[in-house]
């Protein structure tokens, strides 16, 4: 089976004042269509840097990122924007949705720039927000806001959904429901999902787990029997 996303020997370091921080020492792996990948690691292990490079928000010092056979590394800024526009859907810990737009409008915002977007109402139904479609973020709970963020990311119909600590700002029950939603999207829409987390319990729901430490992937394992989000606890 052809890999959807390949990371080849990625390295990234940056300077914080006069100190060189080696954020990513070595990362080499490939993902396939429909994978649910959990990248697990403590703070400063390099997982966010890896996600940013995979998502075209940052560039590596060396190494390559190949998306569906297309070389992402070396793309100029405009090409990287186009890459994010068509191939990637981001979900952040703090939602980053537009406060002046309703839930539905936030999703429509993503549709605006997509070549082959999904139907907004269907996406809202998929994330369970049909009844809240006309509500503003300030009228919603954190979990509902994160659902809007997921819906917005999915509506573009991207190849991969990249989620950076999507449950980090949520309570346990809400966090589980968000993970369940991501699993559902992965299964129903056959979207590749990457979830970054420092929460060890979440690793059990991924069918592939990459464990990181000090900028390196120290474990890359296939989970033959992933748990349902409702079965995990932290």
């Amino acid at each position: 089976m052809t890999a959807l996303l390949e990371a080849r020997n990625l390295k990234k370091s940056y300077w914080r004042g006069e100190v060189e921080v080696r954020a990513l020492v070595h990362a080499d792996f490939s993902l396939e269509q429909g994978d649910f990948v959990v990248i697990l690691g403590p703070s400063g292990s390099g997982k966010s840097t890896l996600l940013n490079i995979l998502g075209g928000m940052d560039t590596p010092d060396s190494g390559e990122v190949i998306m569906a056979g297309q070389m992402v590394t070396g793309m100029n800024e405009r090409e990287l924007t186009e890459y994010r526009r068509t191939s990637i859907g981001f979900v952040f810990q703090y939602y980053n949705i537009m406060p002046s737009l309703t839930a539905k409008e936030n999703v429509e915002l993503a549709r605006e720039i997509a070549d082959d977007p999904l139907d907004v109402d269907e996406v809202l139904a998929a994330v369970g927000l049909t009844d809240r479609a006309d509500h503003f973020p300030s009228q919603m709970s954190g979990g509902e806001q994160q659902r809007v963020a997921i819906a917005r990311a999915v509506a573009k119909n991207p190849d991969i959904l990249m989620c950076d600590e999507p449950t980090g700002a949520l309570d346990y029950e809400t966090g589980v429901s968000i993970l369940a939603l991501l699993c559902d999207i992965n299964k129903r829409l056959d979207k590749t999902v990457i979830v970054i987390t420092h929460n060890v319990a979440i690793a059990d729901i991924g069918d592939r787990v990459l464990r990181m430490r000090s900028g390196e992937i120290v474990e890359d394992r296939i989970n033959p029997d992933p748990l349902s989000p409702v079965d995990i606890t932290w």
């Binding site: 998502g55 928000m57 924007t81 994010r84 526009r85 537009m98």
Partner: peptide
Amino acid sequence: KTELSSLRVMGFYKDE
């Protein structure tokens, strides 16, 4: 800034 940045992440061009 945050809003505009998330637009950039979503794939909006600077010109847009």
